[in-house]
Computed example of a mutant assay.
Amino acid sequence: MLVSKSSLRRRLQIVELVRKRGEVSVEELSQVFDVSSVTIRTDLTYLEQQRYLVRSFGKARYLSQRPGDNVLAPIADSATRKASETTIARFAAEAVDDHESLMMGAGEVVHRILPFLSDRSNLALLVQDIGMAQTAQRFLHCELQLTGGQLEQGSSTMTGPDAEASVARRSIDLCFLEASGLDREGNLLCADPALARVFQAARQAATRTIVVAYQPQLNERDGEVFANLADIDALLIDDGIDPPTMDLMPRKGLQLHRRESGILEFRQSTY
Rank of each mutant, 00 (worst) to 15 (best):
S4A: 11
S6G: 03
R11S: 13
Q13H: 11
R21D: 14
G22R: 12
E23M: 13
V24Y: 04
V35L: 04
T39P: 02
D43K: 02
L44G: 05
T45F: 11
Q50F: 14
R55T: 03
F57T: 14
F57D: 13
A60E: 03
L63A: 06
S64A: 13
S64H: 13
Q65G: 12
R66Q: 10
D69H: 10
V71Y: 04
L72P: 00
I75N: 05
A76N: 10
A76F: 07
E85L: 10
A95W: 01
S101A: 12
M103G: 07
M104G: 08
A106Q: 13
H111I: 02
L114Q: 03
L114M: 03
P115V: 09
P115R: 06
S118H: 14
N122F: 15
L126C: 10
D129I: 07
G131R: 09
Q134S: 08
R138M: 10
F139C: 04
Q145Y: 06
E152P: 02
Q153R: 10
S155T: 12
S156A: 07
T159E: 01
G160M: 11
P161V: 09
A165V: 14
R169K: 15
S171Q: 13
I172P: 00
L174P: 05
L177P: 05
L177A: 12
L182P: 01
L188W: 10
L189C: 07
A194M: 09
A194R: 09
A196G: 10
V198D: 06
Q200L: 12
A202I: 03
L218F: 09
E220K: 03
R221Q: 12
D222L: 08
G223S: 08
V225N: 04
A230Y: 02
I232C: 01
A234T: 00
L235F: 10
D238N: 15
D239N: 15
M246D: 07
M249W: 01
Q255E: 06
H257Y: 08
F266R: 05
Q268Y: 04
